[in-house]
Every structure is written in structure tokens, then in C-alpha cells.
Design a protein around this nucleic acid. Structure first.
Length: 540
RNA sequence: GCUCCUAUAGUGUAGUCCGGUUAAGCAUACUGCCCUCUCAAGGCAGUGACUCGGGUUCAAAUCCCGAUGGGAGCACCA
């Protein structure tokens, strides 16, 4: 019924009549046996039997409103006040993808209007992180490049009566906001405001005076209740030093920057949603062009804190090593862990532009990553909880083993004698009298099982349904530390077992791999070579 | 407390604006089978969802009202 009305809209006005017809037909059909129905369909409506065509999935993000090919400008405005993490990646990817989608421009703008928080170190880390992600910008700038412009626009707002200088105490301002009451400063005339503005340049101390936008103290949206436009900060700015002491607030800076930079579409995370109104109001008061503002949900992984507030104490207490600790969701940590930038991008694209809260489990990122990593990670043997195995009658003194099961990644030669290590877990499953296969080597008959195992080479062994295990020759075994990162927090509590460290043996070929290369330890999982003596577990 | 945002399988989402062509698509997870000198990858199949209660309508995941859960804002941070 729905289908009929959907495909033939002309029937919609005659719904009553059709309903009767349909019930009659359905009743008739129901009289028929299953076989008869089948026959009827085959003879008269064979198209029903052909499988449905797959619905085309949209590639990338949804289309934008008011977006013209070649004219979209987006931007990513991080504050250089910390190391970049997966949340930054989301904002950067969404904005840059839209620019790409419409053949437009993408701006990186360091949002540095709070000298107390910002540092060159973070500025650099953000650039490194974005470069690693493969994000390219057409323009790189800093908000602080435009200080003179902010002053000019600030004066304009003061002179047009859209802004005033407030010398109330912080607590009173906050109280008035809550009670939706204007303070006495709001009634000062333009002349007085101009005088106070001059005084802000030297005389007033930080905290004694601020410039406020004349919003609406009665507004339901609390950020509209005369927000701050400028405040005095005496700290040393990381690039401008002590040149300025009056700094624009986020609202003013973002509004003006996006407008003059020609940004057409600005995407920010959801917590800024209420600021849309104030930004539009400021631009209206200045008669400046308003960009479209879009919002998306914050991205966090379950049990992996993003905020410095939580991470910093962990570092100080030595619970995590540094911002690149593989348990953290910083870009540097994800890189060390073996997550590929392409996977991060795909993953973030898959989350879409929803405003619903996202607390993604790490597995979905892992699934994307596995696909990128599988094709070119070297397969190597590695054993843990090593148990000794001696094998008699070996016909060869070395074997060549391919580095990848399907792709041509070369072979490696392993020298062998009768002494091997195998994994303790495998040793447990081995019983006297059984046959096992040492991968790439051949079948072994188990003659004796004790704390050590003794076996004998068999030329023609079983192939199916026997234990196939990896091994390491004792004489060339290379010991490395295997680091297995796990979830940092279970709910609110720190997971004391979040970092497992294993001493394992691997092949000497490990030493020839480049640092940072992805390896799949056979029957264990994907790992990234962190150094000659350490590997980090990426995922299964 | 006030205000705003949000709600689709275990998880993440598509669809919602503009009700019908969807017995709700995809990914991941899980299960089973195939392939396999890895417990990976690959191939095939399967389980599984529209928060709840009203209303409008011939027809509601989709529109309206209410409730409930989750998140955010009420900074001289961004």
C-alpha cells in the first residue's frame, strides 16, 4: 500500500477506493497456495525475484547549505594551549573536508588571544600533528596578527554605543548575569567609555576593567547577557611579548576573524552552540558579513581522557609517561601506537556531523586501522613466556619465510639449529605423542613433554587440524619489551593495569626494520616498532 | 535553578528538514560457514534498533504536544 502510493502519487486522492480494491486482491491472493503464488510471480512479475539494488551510500559529509563550488572557505582555529588530540583531529578534518569537497580554501588560524595559556611548544605540536594527519592549508595565520584591527573594531563598538567599559567586581558581574540585571557601568556615556578605554591601556590593573558588549541582560541565552569583549592580561604573549595588554575575548576575535578571513562555513564543537547568537550580534553591530555556523558533537573515546585537567596530574604522578603515552588519545600517542592518519580520517568521516554525544569505543578506530595496516605490515614470529623445544633430525640449517602471506614484501632467512623457543600458551596445549607444525618449517612429532619439550622432524605430516605455531631459534632470539596499552579509566577510576609490559623474544630480523614500521606478530596482533628494544601493541 | 542541544541494533551512524517507493540502509562487534602453513586479512550467511506516552493523518522513525534519559552553557578560557 505504501509502495503503491509512493510510486503512484496520483492515487493519493482516491485512497478509500484503492483500499477496498487492495483488500479484495490481497484476499484473493491469500486464497492461493504457496506454490500457486510462486508460479504466478514467475510467470507475470519476474522482476520481483531479482534482488534489490543496493542503496547508494553517501560518500563524505552531507551537502552544505548556500555552498557554491569553488567559493567555500573554512577554517580550523585551535588555541595553542596544549597538545593536539583526537578532538582537534575531528574539527580539523570536518572543516578541511568541506573546503576540499567544494574546491574552496582552508585556513589554519592559531587562536592565541590568551597569553597566559599559550606556548610555542604547543603551537609547534599542533602543526606537527596536523601535518601527520595529512591536512593541508591554504593559509596559516594567528588571531594575534590582527590586534590593531580588534582595537579599531572595539572603538567602533564603543562609539556606536554597542559596548561599554565595566569596572564592576567579577563576582558582581556574575551575580548580575544570573539575576539578569544591568550594572551601573552600562549607563555610562560614550565619552566616559572612551576615557576608560584609554585608562585600560596603562592605568587599570588586570581585573579592574573590561569591555562588555551591550547584549541583552534579560536574554534567556546567558551568553547574551553583556559578554566580555576585551580584558587586561599582563602576561607575556608567546610571539608578541608584552606589546599588548588588552586582549580580545574569544567571541570578539572569532567573529571578526571569520568575517574578515572570508570564512563562509565555520564548524565548531557543540559546546559553542550558544555563542552563535552573540557572534552574529557582534557582526551585526559592526555591519560585517556573517558566516554560516555549524556544530558537531565532541569526540572522546571511552576511558581515554582528552582534557589537560585530567592528563596533567597523571603525568605528574607518573601514572602515564608523557603526552605521547600510548594510552592517551593525543595525536602523538595514537601515532606511536601505530594508528595511521588515513584510519583516523576515515573513522572521523564515519561519525558524521551529528550533534548527539559520541563516546566511541576504540574498536571502531581499530577496525579502520587494521585495513590500512594489514596490507603492508611485515609478518614476524614472536614468542612470549618462552618454553624450550628441541627438535631432532632437522634436514636443514636455515629456512626462508615470506614477510607477507599475499603481498610481495620479500623473504627473510632464519638460521636454525635444534634449539627453539615456543610460546608458553602453545606449550600448554602440546601433549606427548601429538603432531604440531612449526610455521614455515615443517611438522614435528612430540616425543617428550616436561618443562622442556622434545620433538622430532617428520617429512610428511598432517596438514589439517593440527596446531600451527610460531617459533624462535634460541641462538638468535632477540629480546624486546612489548607494551600493551589498555583503557586508562574504568568510569571514574584509574585503571592500574592499563599498561601491560611483556618481555618477549622475536627474530633478529626485527633489528633490520625501520623504527615506526608496522609489524604483525603472527598469531598475536599488529604492533608498531617503537625502538630496537621495544614494540607497542596496536590491536589484534 | 534558568536556558539550549540531543535521543535509531551491543557500539557508531544513514534516513528525519519536504510523512508513503524502507517488512529501516551501512560500518563495527558478535555467531556460523568458506578460504588459509597466523587466532589476521579476504569471501558468504545470520542475530540485532526507531526512548516512552498522547495527538494529527488513509499512512508517522519522519509532523505536533508532553514525559524521561544523556550532554552543554550561565568565565575577565577557547
Amino acid at each position: 500500500m505504501g509502495k503503491i502510493l509512493g510510486t503512484k502519487p496520483e492515487f493519493r486522492t482516491k485512497v478509500k477506493e484503492i483500499t477496498e480494491d487492495i483488500s479484495e486482491i490481497v484476499a484473493n491472493v491469500n486464497q492461493l497456495s504457496f506454490e500457486e503464488i510462486k508460479k504466478e510471480i514467475r510467470e507475470n512479475f519476474p522482476e520481483i525475484l531479482t534482488p534489490k539494488e543496493k542503496i547508494e551510500q553517501r560518500e563524505g559529509f552531507p551537502e552544505l547549505e548556500n555552498a557554491e563550488q569553488g567559493k567555500v572557505i573554512t577554517r580550523f582555529p585551535p588555541e595553542p594551549n596544549g597538545y593536539p588530540h583526537i578532538g582537534h583531529a575531528k574539527a580539523a578534518i570536518i572543516n578541511s573536508e568541506y573546503a576540499k569537497m567544494y574546491g574552496g580554501k582552508f585556513i589554519l588560524r592559531m587562536d592565541d588571544t590568551n597569553p597566559e595559556a599559550e606556548r610555542m611548544e604547543y603551537h609547534a605540536a599542533i602543526k606537527v600533528g596536523l601535518e601527520w594527519l595529512g591536512i593541508k592549508f591554504d593559509t596559516v595565520k594567528s588571531t594575534s596578527d590582527d590586534m590593531e584591527l580588534f582595537y579599531e573594531k572595539g572603538m567602533e563598538l564603543i562609539n556606536s554605543g554597542n559596548a561599554y567599559i565595566c569596572t564592576c567586581k567579577r563576582d558582581d558581574i556574575s551575580k548580575n548575569r544570573r539575576e539578569r540585571k544591568a550594572c551601573k557601568c552600562s549607563f555610562k556615556d560614550v565619552e566616559k567609555n572612551n576615557k576608560n578605554w584609554e585608562k585600560m591601556k596603562e592605568k587599570f590593573k588586570p581585573g579592574e576593567a573590561i569591555v562588555r558588549f551591550r547584549g541583552d541582560m534579560k536574554a534567556d541565552n546567558a551568553v547574551m547577557r553583556d559578554p566580555v569583549l576585551f580584558r587586561i592580561i599582563d602576561g607575556k604573549h608567546y610571539t608578541l611579548g608584552e606589546k599588548y595588554r588588552i586582549w580580545p575575548s574569544y567571541d570578539l576575535a572569532v567573529a571578526i576573524e571569520d568575517s574578515i578571513d572570508g570564512v563562509t562555513h565555520a564548524f565548531r564543537s557543540k559546546e559553542f552552540e550558544l555563542r552563535k547568537e552573540i557572534i552574529d550580534s557582534i557582526l551585526d553591530a559592526l555591519n560585517m558579513r556573517k558566516p554560516y555556523q555549524g556544530f558537531f558533537s565532541r569526540l572522546e573515546f571511552k576511558g581515554m581522557p582528552i582534557s589537560k585537567r585530567i592528563i596533567k596530574p597523571l603525568i605528574e604522578e607518573g601514572k602515564v609517561s608523557w603526552y605521547d603515552d600510548p594510552r592517551l588519545p593525543t595525536l602523538e600517542a595514537l601515532r606511536r601506537r601505530g594508528i595511521k592518519p588515513e584510519a583516523i580520517k576515515k573513522f572521523i568521516m564515519s561519525l558524521g556531523l551529528t550533534k548527539a554525544n559520541t563516546l566511541a569505543p576504540f574498536d571502531s578506530l581499530e577496525a579502520f586501522n587494521r585495513k590500512f595496516v594489514d596490507a603492508n605490515s611485515t609478518r614476524l614470529f614472536m614468542v612470549r613466556n618462552a618454553t624450550k623445544l628441541t627438535v631432532k633430525n632437522l634436514p636443514v640449517s636455515s629456512v626462508e619465510i615470506p614477510n607477507h602471506p599475499v603481498n610481495n614484501m620479500g623473504k627473510r632467512k632464519i638460521e636454525i639449529d635444534e634449539n627453539f623457543y615456543i610460546s608458553g600458551d602453545d606449550a600448554k596445549n602440546i601433549k606427548q605423542g601429538m603432531q604440531i607444525k612449526l610455521l614455515g618449517l615443517g611438522n614435528i612429532f612430540i616425543k617428550k613433554k616436561g618443562t622442556e619439550i622434545e620433538g622430532e622432524f617428520i617429512r610428511e605430516g598432517d596438514i589439517t587440524n593440527i596446531l600451527k605455531i610460531q617459533w624462535i631459534p634460541q641462538k638468535t632470539a632477540h629480546e624486546i619489551k612489548m607494551i600493551i596499552p589498555k583503557v586508562l579509566f574504568n568510569g571514574e577510576t584509574f585503571n592500574e593495569e592499563s599498561l601491560e609490559e611483556l618481555d618477549v623474544y622475536t627474530e633478529p630480523y626485527y633489528l633490520q626494520l625501520k623504527e615506526g614500521e608496522e609489524i604483525q606478530f603472527v598469531r598475536f596482533g599488529y604492533c608498531r616498532k617503537d625502538s630496537q628494544n621495544q614494540a607497542i601493541f596496536t590491536h589484534k
